[in-house]
Write a protein that binds this DNA or RNA. Sequence first.
DNA 1: TAAGATTGAACGCTCAATCTTA
DNA 2: TAAGATTGAGCGTTCAATCTTA
Lengths: 167, 167
Amino acid sequence: VSDDVLWLSPEEELTWIALIGVLVQLPSAIDAQLLRDSGLTFFEHGVLSSLSHAGTEDGLRMSDLATISSSHLPRLSQVITRMETRGWVRRVTDAADRRVIRVVLLPEGRRTLDDAAAAHVANVRRLVFDHLSATQVRQLRTIARQITSAMGSPSPLLEIRKEQLER
Amino acid sequence: VSDDVLWLSPEEELTWIALIGVLVQLPSAIDAQLLRDSGLTFFEHGVLSSLSHAGTEDGLRMSDLATISSSHLPRLSQVITRMETRGWVRRVTDAADRRVIRVVLLPEGRRTLDDAAAAHVANVRRLVFDHLSATQVRQLRTIARQITSAMGSPSPLLEIRKEQLER
DNA sequence: TAAGATTGAACGCTCAATCTTA
DNA sequence: TAAGATTGAGCGTTCAATCTTA
C-alpha cells in the first residue's frame, strides 16, 4: 500500500489529520505571539511559568525543571544560560549536594512573565477556548490527559499545579 | 498578578495545561519513531504523504505543498533539496508558467513512505487511539477542526483527502 | 511591478562526550 | 562508579535579501 495511514479506520484517520493540524499550527501561533510581543519562546515562557509556580524561594533543580518542561538537560542548560544573561534567572549551587544546580526566578524574570501575561492569555483564548463549549473543554481535558498519561511520567510540578487549581 | 494564566477559568487552565502536554510530547514521540525507524522527519513524512495523495502524475507546486504542510516556502525549499539528494522527489519546472516548480514523488520516495507505514501507524495507534473511545475520537476530531478552522485557511489537499475518506 | 522560489546567515535544538561532585 | 549538569559539533528552522519569470 502506498497510503501510510490506511490502517487506521476512516474515522480515526480523519481525526488524526485534524489533530496534526492542531499539533503543527497551534504551537507556531503561540510562539509567534509570545516572540513578537514579549521576546519570549513558548518554551522559555513555560520555564518562567514553572519557576513562578514553584512556590519556593530556593528555585528548582535543573533536572526537575527539565522534567517539568518535558525536555532534557542539555536543552534546558542552554536555555537557562540565555535567560541568565537576560537577567531573568540565576543559577545557584545547592549547598547540600554540590552537583545540583537550582534555578531561581529573579524579579526581572517575573516582570517579563507578568508583562507577557495579558496578551498571551488573550491569544490562547482566541486560538482555543473561544471556539469550544464548556462541554468540549472538559472533553478535551480528558482526552489530552489520557494521551499524555500513557506517554511518560507525569511531571511533578504539573501535579502540584493541578492540585492548586482543583482545590 | 504573577500568574500568567490566571485569566482563564480553572476549568480552562487545567485543560490548557493538559493540552500543552500533548502539543509538546506528541510531536516529539512521532518524530522520534519516524527518525529512528525510517530516517524520516515528521515533516518530511507529511510532505511525502501529501505528494502520494495528490492523485496526479504532475506533482504539486512548491507553494501549494507549503500551504498543505502548514509551512512556508523557504523551509520547504530546503527540505525538498534534502529529499531530492536522497532520490525521493524531483523538481520539475512547470511548462505553462516557468516561475512555478512542481515537486514529483519518485519511486524511491514512495518506497520509503511505504516502508515507514506499518511502524508509523502502530505508533500513532499506541500513542493516541489506543487510549480513546470511539466517542472520544469523534469529539477530538470536532474539537481539533474547530480550533484549526479558526486559525488559517484550510489546506486544499486536506479537503481533498477528507472528501476521499468521507465518501 | 509582482509572483514564485531560492539562498545564506543567525539562531535554536539534539546528542554524544565531558566535567564535576557524591 | 554513578548522578547532575555542561559543552561543542552537526543539523534543521527562520527570515530577510535575492533571483527569475510573468
